[in-house]
Design a protein around this nucleic acid. Structure first.
Lengths: 147, 147
DNA sequence: CTAATTTCAGTTTAACTGATATCA
DNA sequence: CTGATATCAGTTTAACTGAAATTA
């Protein structure tokens, strides 16, 4: 983009925005090539790491809006990666579970995503990548629970 | 947001996205309180730092689309912060210039923005802030001109 | 004729809100 | 009755595309 103004170039919020836009595009395009989207990964990874849950709970765990979660699960179910099963203990809920091919799909997405992250971070050394992750985690955690 | 999955939590592209979203919101809300938007700042700062230019050139310098630049300049002109003057040497162009009150407005925005950046980076030490800016600049520059 | 400029009108996508029906 | 859930329908905003009119 070749920003000309030094003040603009150095503005942290703008640097964050630009880096994030680039990362998002890289990830979106990379996942699109295998017919996936980042929300798919978020749901599959969260199911694998934190176990089955209701849609509302999945929404809280991933940050995807309850209303958008419906569409994501429709797609994952259509493709056979996740299942909705009515919760017998609480009939308002569905229990979302990972299928066997969902687990396989997650492995695939993990591999593809690892490559995309490597591409995104290619100008940085291993130490710098670790530094960046730590700094960003601090920012994000502070925002999640200031004080 | 309390992301539960370790893989999600550690994903650099997601950390970037979340930090950027938070920063953007902070900046947008902060600027809105004084009736400004980040595009206004981008244009005023670029005019001050790199001098008058045509709209197309301003678009290249700031990264704002030529089509969106029209609306931004309409607002800046309405508020008396910038002027459009027809270029006598090239009648396709307008020359955009900063007015006196535009310069004052820029000073105001600089102050407000500095406070917002401080808020955004509040969980980081001065050294960490410098580190973060350097790492992000490396990412952004590499994307602007890979190789 | 080709290319650049300003402008307008429009698309796409993500993030978000609100409301409804069902059930605890 | 209050509150949570799944779902649907819709808004808002930023990022982006396309094309027309003018001039180099």
């Amino acid at each position: 983009m070749t920003t000309t103004s030094p003040r603009l170039r150095a503005l942290p919020s703008r640097l964050l925005s630009q880096a994030a836009t680039h990362g998002d595009r890289l990830v979106s395009e990379g996942l699109a090539r295998i017919g996936a989207r980042k929300w798919h990964y978020a749901v599959l990874a969260t199911l694998a790491d934190a176990g089955p849950a209701s849609q509302a709970e999945m929404s809280r765990r991933t940050g995807i809006y309850r209303s958008d979660m419906v569409a994501v699960l429709n797609e994952l179910e259509r493709d056979g990666y996740a299942h909705r099963v009515p919760d017998l203990d609480d009939h308002r809920r569905n229990v979302i579970t990972l299928t066997t091919s969902g687990t396989a799909r997650l492995r695939e997405l993990d591999t593809v995503l690892a490559g995309l992250q490597r591409e995104l971070l290619s100008p940085l050394t291993a130490t710098q990548r670790k530094q960046l992750a730590e700094l960003l985690t601090q920012l994000v955690d502070h925002h999640d629970s200031p004080q």
